[in-house]
Design a protein around this nucleic acid. Structure first.
Length: 543
RNA sequence: GCCCCUGUAGCUCAGUGGAUAGAGCACCGGUUUCCUAAACCGGGUGCCGCAAGUUCAAUUCUUGCCAGGGGCACCA
């Protein structure tokens, strides 16, 4: 919010002096205190356009801004312009933050554009695994932050319950059924081998008599029931992970509504399909894909792409104007063909954004834990939650940028120590709660006028600055599509608070000062709480 | 072979065109008659993987190479 204020002043000054209306001066926090609070190197950019010395340009801008009473002083060093803000400016700003409470970073109706964010969408053929947790944490946090900043975003889970996977699940379950009944059995190579299959079949056997069904009927039954069972299990895991979806869509329904046929007909009308070796291919290479892709196999079944195209068609028909898909790294090769078919259906490909996050390695005692879903050696999201807890898991999953390979250190996540950033941030919150309690016991309560102009200590001004950054941080998350920026900020905020706390007492004999400091830490507390909640982490009052 | 991601301090990572490249951990030392010591304060570290190019300015952008990880289906 401060940067915007300075940027606006700069733009006005530049327009007045140089008659340039389309410059976007970038304002940054000064790397060093000697360079003030904020700086801009706009003079370097203008030097080129104006063919003039950056130092001259910088001092012209400085002169034009001298009348602005937010600034204590403005310095020109080299071509840089450094802004030193008055404490009164910070006092005014923190007063606004304080009066708005937990809503201070909330924007209403910035954009009416309807955004749909799809993530996880794992096959309902087994439990949630670790990498799903990363997608879930990223997606859920991102949607919360979008809505916090005035965007109109909805989260959605797509259930692949219409295709070959269900069939394979049924066959696999049926073979396991035979195994449990002492009959000869053979689970197909590409089927499901995890021990969770056996758990499910045992459960069904306890409820339903499967013995009178033939293999086909039993497979179908187990496939259908299995999908329901595993989907319910997945949603429950996600709920324990503090992830909830605004909407769930079934592939089965998309197919029943005839949208797959619509896709085929539309592409055929546009002459974008052809037959080869008995299969039907979509000319995705016309839209930038490396090669054409099959959408109907030679046995008549659809490949994954076709119903998924239908699903994206459905999103548009439900009047979503901007689509974001969050995929795991194993789907990156799929991006081009999905965008291709989306465009072929007549939609603007710029309205479909696909974010890819990278893998998760579980690290324990310094070593990687290897997993394979096919072989059934998996660690589930439930296992992880039971081991390290929801808060640590949520924090760790968004702590790294989505493009980095996340090494999830199980030992660290469980540590209740300074090494563990989740505890560090939560501790700041609990500490403030405790201060507020203590103040109450001394009869000091926030319920009226607060004189913020008493806050002039270096640590106090620092803390105000960091609080004021919060809305900018949320906007950075959105602009960069990078939730990781938020946990990093919260660590900074907690650190700045702890530093302040150790230097200054909040509650002293000076009642007016105590109230001002109490209001300040109340703002910190609100910011931490709101920030943690945006990444699905609790902010306890006691630890 | 092709595609994607990554390479920054001993370790884990910030830093997506600007000033002297930053945190945390680890290591050493200090701080509690006082609101939570799960905290704070001080101490030093870098061929920013390598090499060219673009730029007034490159850790940041481009290209090539090297190293690690992941993916290349009529699976999803």
């Amino acid at each position: 919010m401060i940067k915007t204020t300075i940027t606006e002043s700069l733009k006005k000054a530049i327009e007045e002096i140089f008659k340039l209306s389309d410059t976007e001066p970038s304002v940054v926090e000064s790397p060093n205190k000697q360079f003030g609070d904020y700086s801009t190197q706009v003079a370097f950019q203008l030097a080129k356009i104006l063919k003039n010395d950056p130092k001259k340009i910088a001092s012209d801008i400085k002169n034009a801004l001298e009348g602005n009473n937010n600034f204590e002083k403005i310095e020109v060093v080299g071509g840089y312009i450094n802004f030193f803000l008055k404490n009164e400016f910070y006092h005014k700003e923190i007063e606004k933050v304080y009066s708005e409470g937990k809503e201070f970073a909330k924007l209403k109706h910035l954009s009416e554009e309807k955004i749909l964010v799809e993530y996880v969408s794992s096959n309902p053929t087994g439990p949630m695994v670790i990498v799903n947790g990363r997608a879930a944490a990223l997606g859920d946090s991102f949607v919360r932050i979008l809505n916090m900043r005035g965007y109109n975003a909805i989260s959605e889970f797509y259930i692949n319950d219409g295709g070959n996977q269900v069939f394979l699940l049924g066959i696999s379950c049926n073979e396991v059924y035979k195994k449990l009944n002492g009959m000869p059995y053979e689970i197909p190579e590409n089927g499901y081998h995890g021990s969770y299959i056996e758990d499910f079949v045992k459960l069904i056997i306890g409820k339903t008599d499967l013995s009178k069904m033939d293999d086909e009927a039993r497979s179908n039954y187990l496939g259908t029931e299995g999908v329901k069972y595993f989907h319910t299990m997945q949603i429950k895991s996600l709920k324990n992970f503090n992830v909830k979806f605004d909407s769930e869509i079934h592939e089965r329904i998309i197919r029943e509504e005839g949208l797959t046929e619509y896709v085929i007909e539309t592409l055929r009308d546009k002459n974008l399909l052809y037959e080869k070796d008995g299969a039907t291919f979509f000319k995705s290479s016309d839209f930038g894909d490396d090669k054409d892709r099959a959408i109907i196999k030679s046995n008549g079944e659809y490949t994954y792409l076709l119903p998924d195209a239908a699903y994206h068609e459905d999103k548009i028909r439900r009047n979503f104007e901007y689509l974001i898909d969050i995929f795991g790294p194993d789907h990156h090769g799929y991006v081009k063909r999905l965008r291709a078919i989306f465009e072929a259906l007549g939609h603007n490909p710029d309205k479909l954004e696909i974010l890819i996050h990278q893998i998760v390695n579980l690290i324990n005692e310094g070593g990687k834990i290897k997993m394979s879903k096919r072989k059934g050696t998996i660690i589930t999201l439930d296992d992880l939650l039971e081991d390290v807890g929801k808060d640590a898991a949520r924090f760790f999953f968004v702590m790294r940028k989505k493009n980095s390979h996340l090494d999830f250190d199980l030992k660290l996540a469980k540590e209740k120590s300074e090494n563990n950033p989740v505890f560090y941030v939560q501790y700041a919150h609990a500490r403030i709660a405790s201060i507020i309690d203590f103040a109450g016991s001394k009869g000091i309560r926030l319920n009226g006028y607060v004189n913020f102009s008493l806050l002039n200590e270096e640590k106090e001004i620092e803390l105000i600055k960091v609080i004021l950054l919060f809305p900018d941080i949320l906007d950075d998350v959105i602009r960069m599509r990078e939730p990781a920026i938020l946990p990093k900020y919260l660590i900074d905020l907690a650190s700045t608070f702890h530093s302040f706390y150790n230097k200054h007492r909040v509650i002293t004999d000076d009642k007016e000062l105590s109230l001002a400091r109490l209001a300040l830490v109340q703002c910190v507390k609100n910011t931490i709480k709101v920030g943690l909640n945006l990444i699905g982490v609790n902010a306890p009052d006691k630890m």
